[in-house]
Amino acid sequence: MSTSLLTYSSITKKIIMACAGLFLVLFLLVHLGINLCILRNDNGDWFKAASHFMGTNYIIKIFEIVLFGGWIIHIFTGVVLTLKNWASRPVGYYKSNKSNTSFFSKYMIWTGLIVFTFMAIHFMNFYFVKLGIVPIPQGSGAESKEDFYRMVIALFQTPLYSIIYIVLIISLGFHLYHAFQSAFQTLGINHNKYNSTIKMVGLIYSLIVCIGFSIIPFYFLCFYKG
C-alpha cells in the first residue's frame, strides 16, 4: 500500500489525507462525547457503560481498525507531502516570507507532531493498559485493566499531567482549525456562498474540541473532591 501511495500524484495524496483527516474529525466528536460522560456525578456509571460499549461492540471493533488505518494513512501522507515540500526549496530566503498567510497552515506538521506525541502518551496511559502491554498504574485504584474511570481521575489529579494535556489539546485545536477548511478546499469545495460558513463551522468545531477536552482535566484539578 505504501509504495502505491508514494506514486500517486500530489493532489491524490492530499485528497487521501483530507478524507482520512475528516474521518478523524468525526471520531474526535465521538471520543469527546464519551469523555464528557465522566463529568456526570454518578460514580462513573455512564462513562463505564460507554467505554464498555466501545470496547465490546463488534461494529465499533471494525471501526477501530478503520480508525487506525485512517490515522496511519493521515500521518503517512502528511509526512510524505511535507518532505516533498521541504525538498522543493533547497535554498531558503534570507528575509523570511512576509506574505499574508493563514497562520496555522505553516505549522501543520509541527502541530501534527505534537498531536502524535500526545497520542503516544495517551496510548501508554490507556489503550496499552487495556491490551495488557503496560501494567495498570500503581496507586490509581483501578480495579481492572479496563477501569479507565479511576485511571483518568488519578491522572487528571496530577497537576503537571493536566497542564500538559491542556497544552496538547490546544495545539490539536490549532491543527483542526486550519485542517477543517483546508480539507474542503482540497476536495474542491470552494464557493463564495459557503466559504464563510465552512470557516465558521471549522472555528466552532475546533473550539468545541478544545474546550470540551480541556474542561475535564480542569474540573478534576480544581473542583473534584474524592
Partner: peptide, 15 residues
C-alpha cells in the same frame, strides 16, 4: 518538475 504540494496557506493568492 519538483514543485511542492499545496498546503492551503494562500500566500500565492495574496502575492
Amino acid at each position: 518538475l519538483g514543485f511542492g504540494n499545496c498546503s492551503n496557506t494562500y500566500a500565492c493568492e495574496f502575492e
